[in-house]
Amino acid sequence: MIGNDIVDLKQAALDSPDSYPDGKRHLRFLEKVFTVKEQDLIIASEDKHQTVWLLWSMKEAAYKVNVQQFGKRFFNPKRLECELVSNEKGMVKIDIETYFTSSKITEDYVYTVATLKEESSFKTHCFKAKKLNYKLQSEVLKQQFLKSVAKNKNYNLKTLKIKKSEVGVPKVYRDLKRLPINFSLTHCGRFSGFVYL
């Protein structure tokens, strides 16, 4: 199982002004989302806004794996505890489960992939797309992902389709048969990304 999450840092600043150190409700935002230990990491970091979203994307990516495992949604960012091994590598604990994360940080975005095993090999790609409405952007991302799968596994792109399960976890189908491909899709602002095992 695998999960990913991308944060467009510009979009995040626009959408969540409280994530900025000078946001009116910044402290309350931090308190709702991060453990004391994580808040210390943010305060000690050079680029606080970037660290907020690095930790956030780690939590989101790990959460996506957790939902696939247990089929239960919840919203409690503090129940997910991040640990940074380096800027790019980290771990997220959810109750007794541990997830391993690897992140890519640029000026424009933070992108994290979470896996169950420390050394997983996965295919991932993130790209910039013209900002479209929600539905169109989601369609573009699905097509990019299916194109990659079709190419990799030698399938006809036209036979591939994505459908969501009851808890909202997407699955890929070839004609009517579900394929055993674990994957995760994410988009935010100008950026989109997919990953699969």
């Binding site: 959408d15 309350r28 935002f29 709702k32």
Partner: peptide, 20 residues
């Protein structure tokens, strides 16, 4: 909030602060 309204999870924090 998420499946129907497509509110992103970061904004769910804003919703909660606004409700408070």
């Amino acid at each position: 909030f998420i499946n129907d309204l497509k509110i992103n999870s970061a904004n769910l924090v804003d919703v909660i602060l606004d409700v408070e």
